[in-house]
């Protein structure tokens, strides 16, 4: 008798998803047992990929994102001669979800790429001059690629978290510029340049050719740490961190990104079937504040950095 009830519930869930979901919302709970305002279990691990120059693996419930940073050298443009750049790409490979079939990037992934890029290249969040090697000659490019390994709703929050963790995990190697103008991180060449610089300092004379460009190893750091929370609206109920099943039933989504000082880095509500009143927007901001308190210790632990509240 009980198995037929279980089958009925599963069938109801598939055929009438909206009504099924409404029954739970009316009781202020969700099918996976969470209250409306609770996010799924979150974990952050840095250094997941050894071949990358910086990486992080983030899980929010089943949603898994892995971010890797690869460093390369570019020649800065004339109007931005003392900065490098961060190129963010969020990819949803076909393995992450049954709904991603073709090779073209999904709209969700492109949207997430652009929004994360905007946040991470803003001067108040990340100082791009850290990536400068020699003004006008060479600068670092940090290719930050974020792959979704399992798409169970709320890609954006996980992607942003992975991006922030991976970027903070990057240590720029010491580099020097060779005679042909190419930058190299080859340890032998760098050691030689370091020795030359030391000699020049000790003897107090300047190299006739001019001082060779040499930078030291340093860790990348963010000026402020942005953490986001995506909420969905369904019949007036505000639902935090929607999973994939819930995402299909939402009227609209609102993403709020805050930094440690409580400043709004982004409030994103792209259209949707309903509008959001000021009250709802303020609720979202409040929920994001609580989420920040939840997630920042995870980042702190992983990166071993002190982050001021």
């Amino acid at each position: 008798m009980s198995t037929s009830h279980a089958l009925d519930a599963e069938a109801y869930r598939k055929i009438y998803p909206a009504e099924f979901y409404k029954k739970f919302l009316d009781e202020k709970v969700r099918p996976d047992g969470r209250p409306l305002g609770r996010c799924r279990a979150t974990s952050v691990a840095a250094g997941a990929v050894s071949k990358a120059d910086g990486s992080a693996l983030v899980k929010i419930g089943n949603t898994t994102m892995i971010a890797g940073v690869k460093l390369e050298i570019m020649r800065p443009t004339d109007d931005a001669s003392d900065v490098g750049t961060v190129e963010v790409t969020v990819e949803m490979p076909p393995l992450c979800s049954a709904s991603v079939r073709s090779g073209r990037p999904t709209e969700e992934a492109q949207s997430a790429s652009q929004r994360i890029s905007e946040v991470l290249t803003h001067p108040a969040v990340f100082d791009l001059t850290q990536l400068c090697i020699a003004k006008g000659q060479a600068a670092w490019v940090a290719y930050l690629d974020i792959f979704c390994l399992d798409a169970d709703g709320n890609i954006f929050d996980a992607a942003l978290l992975a991006a922030v963790a991976a970027l903070s995990d990057v240590t720029l190697p010491a580099v020097t510029v060779l005679e042909d103008g190419r930058v190299t991180a080859d340890t032998a060449a760098v050691a030689e340049a370091q020795a030359n610089a030391k000699d020049a300092m000790q003897t107090g004379e300047e190299n006739a050719k001019g001082t060779q460009i040499l930078t030291s190893q340093r860790q990348l750091s963010l000026k402020c740490v942005p953490i986001g929370l995506t909420c969905g609206l369904n019949q007036g109920h505000l639902i935090a961190d929607p999973c994939a099943e819930e995402s299909g039933l939402l009227d609209t989504t609102i993403t709020v990104i805050l930094n440690e000082s409580g400043e709004l880095v982004s409030v994103y509500k792209p259209g949707g079937n309903v509008g959001a009143s000021d009250a709802i927007l303020m609720d979202c901001i409040e929920m994001s504040r609580l989420r920040y308190k939840e997630v920042s210790p995870l980042l702190e632990k992983v990166l071993g950095k002190g982050m001021s509240e």
């Binding site: 460093l71 390369e72 570019m74 020649r75 490019v141 991180a185 080859d186």
Partner: peptide
């Protein structure tokens, strides 16, 4: 697309 190269041998 940016023209970049890797400094790592």
């Amino acid at each position: 697309a940016l023209e970049t190269y890797s400094p790592f041998t």
